[in-house]
C-alpha cells in the first residue's frame, strides 16, 4: 500500500505543477515564452500520466483518470509549492526553478530505483526536467541581473515562495520505508546538491538567498493551502459534471 502512496506523491506533484503552468497557455509574456511554458506543462502532464498509470496498476481497481479526477483535496499528496498561484511571470519562474532543481536531483536518484517501472519513468522524466531547469535558471539570471525593477520583483518572488521549499527534503515513515528498501529516494540527501544549484544560480543572478524561516509542511498528509481547492475545481470540473463523458 505504501508503494501506491509513494507513487501518487510523485504523480500528484507533476500533475498539479502541470495544471498550474497550463494556465499560462495563451497568456505568456511573449510568444516564445508562452510556447515554452506550455511545453513544460505538457512534459509534466505526460510524466504525471506515467506515474498515475503505474498507481492504477498497483491499485488494481482505479484508473489513472479516477486518480486525477475523482479524488478530493485531502487525498492529494503534491508538494504545496506546486499548487501555488502563478502570480506574475517572475513568481512562476522562481517556483519553476526551485521545483526543477529538486526534480532534476530527485529523478537522477529515482532512476537507480530497484523498482523497474519507477526507474524507467524517472529516467524518461530526467531528460525533460534538465531542460526545465536550464530554462528557468536562465530566466532567474536574466531577471535578477536585469533591470532595477526586474531584480526587485524576482527577489520578492524568491522571498515569498521560499517557505515552501522545505517540503522537498522531508522524510516521513513512508519515505523512509520505501527509500530503505532501495525503491525510493532519500530526500534529505538531496539538500546539499540543491543548495549548490540554488546558491550558484543566485550568485550569477546577483540575488540574495532568503534567510532561514518557518517552512510550510503537511502535503504528505494531504494538508494543503487554499490554492489547491480552486485548482481542482477547475481541473476536475468536466469529469465531475459529466461523469462518464468520453473524448
Amino acid at each position: 500500500m505504501n508503494l501506491l502512496n509513494y507513487t501518487l506523491r510523485i504523480a500528484d506533484s507533476s500533475l498539479i505543477s502541470a495544471q498550474r503552468l497550463s494556465e499560462w497557455c495563451s497568456k505568456g509574456p511573449t510568444l516564445e515564452e508562452d510556447i515554452a511554458l506550455s511545453n513544460i506543462s505538457l512534459d509534466l502532464f505526460g510524466q504525471a500520466n506515467g506515474f498515475l498509470e503505474y498507481a492504477s496498476e498497483i491499485d488494481g481497481s482505479k484508473s489513472a483518470d479516477d486518480f486525477a479526477f475523482k479524488r478530493n483535496e485531502r487525498e492529494f499528496y503534491n508538494l504545496k509549492i506546486t499548487e501555488q498561484e502563478n502570480g506574475h511571470f517572475g513568481d512562476t519562474i522562481a517556483r519553476l526553478f526551485f521545483c526543477s532543481a529538486f526534480n532534476f536531483l530527485f529523478y537522477t536518484e529515482l532512476s537507480k530505483s530497484k523498482d523497474e517501472t519507477l526507474s524507467a519513468l524517472a529516467a524518461k522524466s530526467l531528460k525533460e526536467v534538465k531542460y526545465h531547469l536550464k530554462h528557468s535558471k536562465s530566466w532567474m539570471i536574466r531577471l535578477g541581473d536585469g533591470t532595477e525593477e526586474s531584480k526587485l520583483k524576482i527577489q520578492e518572488s524568491l522571498n515569498s515562495i521560499w517557505q515552501f521549499t522545505g517540503e522537498f527534503f522531508e522524510m516521513d515513515k513512508i519515505d523512509i520505508e520505501i527509500s530503505d528498501s532501495g525503491i525510493g529516494v532519500n530526500n534529505t540527501s538531496l539538500k546539499e546538491e540543491w543548495n549548490k544549484i540554488v546558491n550558484d544560480t543566485l550568485d550569477q543572478a546577483k540575488l540574495t538567498r532568503p534567510e532561514d524561516m518557518y517552512m510550510q509542511t503537511g502535503s504528505k498528509k494531504g494538508l494543503h493551502t487554499e490554492c489547491l481547492g480552486h485548482l481542482l475545481s477547475e481541473m476536475q470540473y468536466l469529469p465531475r459534471a459529466y461523469p462518464d463523458a468520453k473524448w
Binding site: I35, A36, N39, I40, Y131, K134
Partner: peptide, 13 residues
C-alpha cells in the same frame, strides 16, 4: 538560439 522550446517539445527555435 531564440528559445529552448519550439513549436513542439522535441525542437528548439
Amino acid at each position: 538560439l531564440v528559445s529552448e522550446f519550439g513549436a513542439t517539445a522535441c525542437k528548439s527555435f
